[in-house]
Amino acid sequence: MSLIVSQAPSTERPPAAPPSLTPNQRAWRRFWRNRPAVLGLFWTLCLLVLVLTWPWIAPYTFEATSDAQFSPPSAQHWFGTDVHGRDLMTRVIYGARISLLVGWIGALVAVINGVVWGASAGFLGGKWDGFAMRVVDVLYSLPSIIFVIVLITTLEGFLRKWLVATFDAGPAAVGYARLIFLFAGLGAISWLNMARIVRGQVLSLRQRAFVDASLALGAHPLRVIAKHILPNIFGIVIVYATLTIPAIILYESFLSYLGLGIQAPMASWGSLIADGASQLNPIRVYWWLIVFPAGMLVTSLLAMNFLGDGLRDAWDPKGRSD
């Protein structure tokens, strides 16, 4: 038994890297060796290309209705059609566009918010740190759905009025405005974890000699943050941002299910699944309405999680906790 114990670490450790490699290069090397992660990256890129080029290669538009209602998958409609005879495949790929956009921009909002909040708390310390982290604690103990609903409806009231007054905007523009509230609302509830992680990192960096040296030489605190702190937390921030994207896409699908997400005729994966679920009845089972959007959602989330896990294993091998 003890033999196995002493051998186990040595078989797991990668062959000693030549000293010329930077930590970043070594991390990339670890990443490319992780097959599921590379597969996840590949799938995400494929999805991106498909989503971006689809408007030019699609035989139907996402709003085009036809007489073929609820037709099962066939040669004309690979994923079948929905209640208005719209091609489901086109709608699923169009939905991917919205879901990915919401996920990526929502994650961006969460990252900026979390980094600013967490880094300032960790760097300034003292009273501000206590206050900032107390705010995070309080927001943690508030059910996020209340926060999102209030935020989205309040913003919607303001923005809609403003759009109509200033640009004389039609309903289409108001539909796109919904997207902006989703970015804001989803970003606003997803930054708490990021703030905690960043604060922890900054707190430990703050103790390091090079930060003290820089401050002692008279560098402005903002310069220290920009030059020394931020580059050092960049890796970990990217890693957790990658894991935030699928979480936000999931939350968006939940909001769409509530009817708070994307509004018809636009579609996201969540709203397509919700439409499919509303057609559930004991007489006819329209399985394709749920199976295809859900399948795309699940495979894409899987790919992004594999990618995020791979990035985390490569850059932050110690900090593994969900």
Binding site: P246, L250, S253, F254, Y257, G270, I273, A274, G276, A277, L280, P282, V285, W287, I290, V291, A294, L297, V298, L301, L302, N305, F306, D309
Partner: peptide, 23 residues
């Protein structure tokens, strides 16, 4: 375990209803 982590309740629920309850 990762797959379970990627399937939200609003996908599992309708699928279970369709398969185990209706079919």
């Amino acid at each position: 375990s990762l797959l379970a982590f990627c399937i939200p309740g609003l996908v599992v629920g309708p699928l279970l209803i369709m398969g185990l309850a209706l079919q």
